[in-house]
Design a binder for these strands. Structure first.
Lengths: 190, 190
DNA sequence: CTGTATTGTCAGTTTAGACTGACGTCTCAG
DNA sequence: CTGAGACGTCAGTCTAAACTGACAATACAG
């Protein structure tokens, strides 16, 4: 730990720089900093790592490392690994970024998009009910409100379709489609 | 304000339900709650609104409303409106969700994606330099690290391309391309 | 089966970010 | 030109989330 050599250990420095960038990307993505750092370190490390090595390497508490690993496993981007004759549990990350991204999108869809879409439809249904249960000027206003909510719901629905196409296609094909699309619609305006 | 009728004002209730849903969507998207609520209310309101009306309607402070409006204007989804013979400033929201989404993606790209991509390339460059400046086993390890960082950078670059195609195409075409793509590449594997 | 090494959990603390409210600045009707 | 009304800002307060560290549960070598 205290060997002077460590201070300028190039491998460590290379890792640290990447870990910070990934961590920031994770935060933009709504994932907390420690989780991002753990994920980055596991991505870079060829061997699998145990909780305490992670905690020590990243200077975070054992508890934090454990919780972060739990999150990453729930996201499906980290696997448990056991070695015969070794009591410890090790963890390793999915190494292909596209696979990782695909998994993440699928999980986000399930956790976040689906529930919020249900609530959106509820809100639209409530608006429709309210407008049908009224009359005169009030009815007109409620109908206008309902129209706006439906408009937003339509947008949201198309957005979900977009996610679904991505999930169905897989990344290789996705990229190809996009490249083709880019040629079909070159430097277009808005 | 205190009229009992207000308690069951259907218009208000319809608005509130939608506002809460939008607010939650905003938070998933990394936008803070008040900003989301202000945006939702402006989207629903046909007329433009002034700061104090917003604050009163949403039960937030004047300062909070003002800051939220500033944010929304920086995102380019809310416009200032002045009425002749009226000292107040009013605000109104972009009413087309796709336009709003497009603007938001463009802004996020500028603010978040571009800077983080630069740092990613820096990290990759640093890794390459470190590997070239070393030898033996250490060099081999650094080359492996560099390879992984490049792999991630390639992924990130493709992702940005994807964003760019979206920005260039506009939403109508985007949706069409996706629908076509879905037919061309049905149920594709990874 | 037992003891110990290891992982998992969670109450309490810390930290980061949001919100308020008071104040300074600006604008325009009179 | 003046001042009342409206907007913008920001220091201080509050809130929600992250992190720690100690303890509980678990698993497995011996």
């Amino acid at each position: 730990m205290n060997e002077p050599a460590d201070i300028r250990d190039p491998q460590r420095e290379v890792e640290d720089r990447f870990i910070e960038v990934w961590s920031d990307i994770s935060q933009l993505w709504g994932v907390n900093k420690s989780v991002g750092r753990v994920h980055a370190l596991l991505y870079l490390t060829p061997d699998s790592l145990d909780i305490d090595s992670l905690a020590e390497r990243l200077q975070i508490s054992h508890g934090n490392a454990s919780t972060s690993i739990r999150d990453l496993m729930a996201w499906g981007v980290v696997r448990r690994v056991t070695k015969p004759g070794d009591r410890k549990t090790y963890f390793e990350a999915e190494k292909d970024p596209w696979t990782w991204f695909h998994t993440t999108i699928r999980e986000r869809r399930r956790r976040e998009v689906v529930p919020v879409m249900e609530r959106l439809h509820e809100a639209a249904g409530f608006a429709e009910g309210a407008s049908k249960g009224s009359k005169g000027a009030e009815r007109k206003q409620l109908e206008e409100l309902h129209g706006k909510i439906e408009k937003f719901a339509d947008f949201a629905h198309e957005f979900v379709d977009l996610i679904d196409v991505f999930l169905a296609m897989g990344h290789g094909r996705m990229a190809k489609v996009f490249r083709t699309a880019a040629k079909l619609f070159p430097k277009g305006g808005s």
